[in-house]
């Protein structure tokens, strides 16, 4: 009989936006893979960003809170594939992201309304 592993999980570690790259680098070195990045609007001009990582079947997430004007640093230097999620976040939420490896500059999701989730 197989060992059951929980399919979903909410193991979230709250971090400071300044330590994002350090935390992500640590995860990269312990061979976690990036699964998704998701932004949520929490109030007038404040957002939280959830980064989910997987290792085998395990999941864990880190979360940070930012304000609308703050620039978030890109994690594409550590996980190159994050460009899709980061461009998505920029196009839908209007969150500015610094130094993406492939920056679509708002051209990934071409929506009628600019940054509809803002």
């Amino acid at each position: 009989m197989r060992q059951p592993i929980r399919a979903g999980e909410m193991m979230i570690c709250e971090i400071d936006p300044d330590t994002l790259l350090d935390e992500v680098t640590k995860l990269k070195y312990s061979e976690w893979r990036l699964m998704q990045i998701c932004a949520t609007k929490t109030g007038e001009d404040s957002y939280e960003v959830l980064y989910t990582f997987g290792h085998g079947y395990r999941l864990r997430s880190i979360r940070l809170k930012i304000s609308g004007e703050a620039k978030l640093s890109s994690i594409t230097s550590i996980y190159p594939i994050a460009y899709l999620y980061e461009n998505e976040m920029h196009d839908l939420f209007g969150i500015e992201i610094d130094m993406i490896n492939i920056d679509f500059k708002g051209g990934l999701f071409r929506t009628g309304v600019k940054a509809p989730f803002k």
């Binding site: 197989r2 059951p4 592993i5 929980r6 399919a7 979903g8 085998g56 079947y57």
Partner: peptide
Amino acid sequence: RRDSRMTDY
């Protein structure tokens, strides 16, 4: 070898 159906749902 990874298939999410191996998890418990």
